[in-house]
Amino acid sequence: MTMTITQTGNRATYDKLAAMGIELDPVGVPGAAFEMAAQSGNLVFVSGHIARKDGAPWRGKLGESVDTDEGRAAARAAALDLVATLHGFLGDLGKVKRIVKVMSLVSSSTTYTDQHVVTNGASEFLLEVFGEAGRHARSAFGVAQLPLGACVEVEMIIEVQ
């Protein structure tokens, strides 16, 4: 099932997604006491999204069962889900003024040190979709474990018009 994309503002973001062959999936419902996105003033905070592959958590640990290239793909997948959630929340990605901040958590072995390279998968995707408005500040952390054994989790803060 795919999400119907309707928008009233700038079509550029939707045109880029279509050119990339991307259809936004429906927004998931949180399984706990939180919101998938919350707005305060002109900032939207999108909750962390774990990477998914074929509808299931993309499991593993960087430096053990997942290599850096696969980790980048997982971060990209998480960023795509973030964009779908943002679309569901705003109703129109044309309202995005700028991606302000991205934070990535990478499930890592104690010797793995390329979390920043893994996070490039999310950052590059956001630049590809939003152009210069997708350029952001970011943090990339190595962690011992993520929910459901996921290898990557990404969250973001967005400025809207």
Rank of each mutant, 00 (worst) to 15 (best):
D54V: 05
G55S: 05
G55A: 05
A56C: 04
P57S: 05
P57D: 06
P57F: 07
W58N: 08
G60W: 09
G60S: 10
K61T: 15
L62M: 14
L62G: 02
L62Q: 11
G63V: 06
G63I: 10
G63Y: 07
E64Q: 14
E64F: 12
S65N: 15
S65Y: 09
S65V: 13
S65I: 10
S65E: 15
V66T: 14
V66N: 07
V66A: 08
V66D: 08
D67Q: 12
D67K: 12
D67P: 12
D67F: 09
D69H: 12
D69F: 13
E70V: 15
E70G: 12
E70Y: 11
G71T: 12
G71W: 13
G71F: 08
R72G: 09
R72N: 08
R72I: 11
A73L: 14
A73T: 14
A74D: 09
A74V: 11
A74M: 06
A75S: 09
A75L: 09
R76Q: 14
R76D: 08
R76Y: 04
A77D: 12
A77G: 12
A78Q: 01
A79K: 02
A79D: 03
A79F: 04
A79N: 00
A79Q: 03
L80P: 00
L80Q: 08
D81P: 00
D81A: 12
D81Q: 11
V83N: 02
V83D: 01
V83R: 00
V83G: 03
A84D: 03
A84K: 00
A84H: 05
T85Y: 01
T85G: 01
T85L: 00
T85N: 00
T85S: 04
L86S: 01
H87S: 03
H87I: 01
H87F: 04
G88V: 05
F89Q: 03
F89V: 07
L90P: 01
G91W: 06
D92F: 01
D92W: 04
D92S: 01
L93N: 01
G94P: 06
G94A: 05
G94S: 07
G94E: 07
G94D: 08
K95W: 07
V96W: 02
K97L: 13
K97I: 02
K97N: 14
K97R: 15
R98I: 09
R98S: 14
I99V: 15
I99R: 03
V100K: 13
K101D: 13
